[in-house]
Amino acid sequence: MRHTITVMVENEFGVLSRVAGLFSGRGFNIDSLSVAPTNDETISRMTIVTRGDDQILEQISKQLNKLIDVIKVIDFTDGEAIEREMALIKVTAEESARAEILRIADIFRAKIIDVTTKSFTIEATGAPAKIDAILELLRPLGLKELVRTGPVAIGRGAKAWKG
């Protein structure tokens, strides 16, 4: 099962490699990982997408908590969190396809952020499934290059995790 885990860590060098090393050393999967400082600059927040059964997820959570630099681990099971991901997508845009690409971008509320006579670069933001969907539509038109951030997640409702 796919899980999105948020990990609050001390914003110090080496922390990312501790977390990444834990996953590789214990044979856990990482589908994606994004990390940046929070409002409190001494804390960084990681969003990790991983897969595994309940027992593996329990271990991932516990092992992350065991790292000295980890302040908090939140396992967002489906529905409790809002996830957003950004993708920058470079597509071939010959004369015949330009209108179609713009239409698709419009439907997904994506932005064209770079234009040449032969290409568009699109900025798309949304839940990972939405990014998958726009890619599916753009792929037949000539997808040249793709970069995805991996999702970031935040809990629903008024309750907030400090930082």
Partner: peptide, 14 residues
Amino acid sequence: IIGITRPCTKHNFL
């Protein structure tokens, strides 16, 4: 040595 001992220490410091 920090990198080398990361998986076999409880924690390490530079």
